[in-house]
Write a protein that binds this DNA or RNA. Sequence first.
DNA 1: CTGGATCCAATACGATACTG
DNA 2: CAGTATCGTATTGGATCCAG
Lengths: 126, 126
Amino acid sequence: MGVSKPPNVNEPMCPSRLVLEHVTSRWGVLVLAALLERSYRFSELRRTIGGVSEKMLAQTLQTLERDGFVHRDAKPVIPPRVDYSLTALGEEAARQVWELARWTERRVQAVEEARVRYDTVREASQ
Amino acid sequence: MGVSKPPNVNEPMCPSRLVLEHVTSRWGVLVLAALLERSYRFSELRRTIGGVSEKMLAQTLQTLERDGFVHRDAKPVIPPRVDYSLTALGEEAARQVWELARWTERRVQAVEEARVRYDTVREASQ
DNA sequence: CTGGATCCAATACGATACTG
DNA sequence: CAGTATCGTATTGGATCCAG
């Protein structure tokens, strides 16, 4: 197999595992993928992603901002306007998760077929 | 930017979002990355990953097996011996998450520096 | 050894109401 | 508009015990 050593994320709570969990988190993936296309305002991003609550979006954005993936640009105007965009680091991460998201879309049918096989086999034997 | 359209995982509960959540789940990522290196037995995998409970490992493996990513080979011997390995589909997924894991490791220091900056700025202003 | 079953704690999440 | 605060629920995850 053409791979070298597996990453040593395999220690209980090493820092990189934490980072990995942030970028692969339920909403983290979707935020990064969306921001790869362009920058978004808060509500705009919320509508684009769909199904995310204000609370979780805010929380996700804060985590990603703290990790240095997302840049938050709050303009001092009324009504408030805040733009979110990717940093250089964030763009690297986003490209990875975006590839993963694309791959998932391409293969989702194969997965569904696998599930049918799995379920029918199990169902038959009980 | 060199990207086309973002994946339409951006609908509340589309099937591909589900699949994405499985492969990016906390333990899913680590299981796939580990199995990319070679096949593992249950306890062996548990030790290798570290910090995962029996319950969660079993659950993760079942999900990945149902999705067609993992092949489960239960040998009818006593004591029981079960080997887990990747299917072709699983290997594709594993390569993606493995790249992500590697990237995370390479960049973990940049993230930690970003966090320090974020925290010191916030701390100074309150 | 491989897991299923059960119980319990932590926390992820969503809905709503509220503020600058 | 862009969040924060609070609450209640749902899900996740771990520990333990048990069976084949």
